[in-house]
Design a protein around this nucleic acid. Structure first.
Lengths: 197, 197, 197, 197
DNA sequence: CGGTAAACGAGACGGTACGTCGTGTCTTTGA
DNA sequence: TCAAAGACACGACGTACCGTCTCGTTTACCG
């Protein structure tokens, strides 16, 4: 089991400056937020971060990949367990937070990353695993606690429930046919996950 | 002697050759289906359609706009009223068709257009009005007939119901975390719009 | 002597509006003076003259041709015979006029036409016959009168003399290494065509 | 710690491949000789030189500038001092060479550059300093030697003499109203700079 | 006086070239 | 070995004119 570090683990030559990576991500994030995906060009990132283009390529293969990294860097998973509250209240709070984020200019970035994930499989996988899966996991956890506590009736198909609560949110975010308000989230949850009794 | 300022309805100059427009859209559609949005370049369209680049710009302002036009050109609204069936059966049939379309390579185009609609307001509006709205309208119509016939219980919020059935479909299409099968559509409809009694 | 007009000489159809030709030439001339030869585009002429592009092509084959026509339209031959003066004084006056013209912004047009005449034989011929030849003819005439009156010694090679007076003028106009002043003209004439006795 | 602002003499980054520049100039020269100025397009140069268009723009701002550079690259100044001969013979030889050059297809290029120099000040300056001035300088030098050796009478205005010998040459080159032969050059020199005694 | 023919404006269309931007790779020097 | 700077080929961009064409409309003449 002892992993044999042949020679590759031994850092040779000039070590990478951690500030370089951070500067690139910060620049990419800024460009992503105003300007959307098309504004995230290697050129612009290099300029803004004070870094040469080849350096960026040493870290990521192309511009969307940097954008995705920048996006995932900030967007942490929701911290599911705010212990004091009831799981049902925590669930509501979590979705209120999502609604707020989607309504804010940051929601623009989410949409951009959805778009980016269409073209390249690698990005799609990253987005799915790092962003989508995390959100679903956090919600699934809370739902299971609700069920344990008898706050909601156990659903026939848990994954379908997750699709039913997240689907409409992304649908509105991406189509923009209607706003994403807390009221909307409330009606959505009341319909899909009604409190039992 | 009074020169009549031509009231804009009078076509002046050489009329446009309808084949030109058709050729451009056909080329764009083909490129969109394999290759996705990034493959739809003015250059490639011009080549494929046997048309000069400036001609394309005479019709549309940029590549995504052509792609959107090509997409909307084929994608007609679902023909809601297959008279013989019950509205509820028609509803199911309609969503089965959507599921089939989304699962087919054409679904790729839908995702691409969602992505395209993120960057430009004009495209977003077109996509919303021509594609999203049409689909919702068709479904809304069928739902109202079902209610009239007492096949389903009248929902508190019709728009929310529409979000609940379309949202998960687009969610799966865009995230790709799970396939869009007829079985999925059935479970979805059974949950959101259960047949009354 | 009675020319038989078969049918081609008889003007059929709507006669050309003389204002059209004039408007085109005026526009071309204006564009030529500021902006030089590159500014004389069919597009710009059409715009400025309020005329359609095909109309211009009905009169001339291409833009430089219009420019040349516009140039030659204004630039009449010098009126050699100002009867009252002595031929020698007339000669001087004529070259002073040329110097003035070359020094003025109109000189810019002359240079432009020299440039234009390089590319196309047709233009070169027109320029040579309409502009160069006329100027040489007028000067040759005056020189011959001077010789008749015994004001100057008869030169061995008249054409060389013409090259010697016109050459340096065009040389300075085109190279711009020195200004074209009346003083320069005077020194030039004094050297090449000194008054006899 | 004080970052030294690189004093421009230190070459940073990848150095330019000298073959690139050479290839561009060679291509431009070839295009210039047959086809004239209008044939010297960036597109054509890139094609012929096996170089990308942006690369050309990295060296020169536009097509005429490349043409001028190509022209000046070959056209070295005449080597005035062929020591063995008398300065007067050298003078004659020099102008015979010019006549030959002007009469050859290369003369076409000279005319083209005169034309090109009309539109842009930068080009005019380059042409004047690199080509016109060099030729005048070489001739002026020989003339001064002739005067020193008492071969010709000292002229009142040296610059005028230079205009008188070069002017007619360019005049004939550009107007094409008469050929540029050695005989013409001889008559020209005999008239303007007669051997004294 | 009505038909015919050309003039003319407007604009479509295939081209060619423009000058620019971004990409991804490579080659230097310097840390 | 990393990092910077910049060279370079490539591909696409959106624009400007070109020269030709197809229309509809207008204006003369001629039978």
């Amino acid at each position: 089991m002892a992993r044999q570090p042949p020679s590759s683990t031994v850092p040779r030559g000039r070590p990478r400056d951690p500030r370089t990576r951070a500067a690139i991500l910060a620049a990419a994030r800024a460009l992503l937020e105003r300007g959307g995906l098309t504004a995230v060009t290697i050129e612009a990132i290099a300029q803004k971060a004070g870094v040469s283009r080849p350096t960026i390529y040493r870290y990521w293969p192309n511009a969307p990949a940097v954008a995705m990294a920048a996006f995932l860097d900030v967007t942490g998973a929701p911290d599911a367990a705010r212990s004091t509250r009831s799981p049902y209240a925590a669930l509501r709070a979590q979705f209120h937070a999502v609604a707020d984020a989607f309504a804010a200019p940051a929601g623009r970035s989410v949409a951009a990353m959805v778009a980016a994930a269409q073209s390249e499989t690698e990005l799609a996988k990253a987005f799915r695993n790092e962003f989508i899966a995390r959100n679903r996991d956090a919600t699934r956890l809370l739902l299971e606690r609700c069920i344990e506590d008898g706050l909601i009736a156990p659903p026939a198909d848990m994954e379908l429930v997750l699709d039913l609560v997240f689907g409409p949110l992304f649908y509105r975010l991406l189509m923009g046919h209607a706003p994403i308000t807390r009221g909307f989230v409330d009606r959505l949850l009341d319909t899909v996950i009604p409190a039992s009794a």
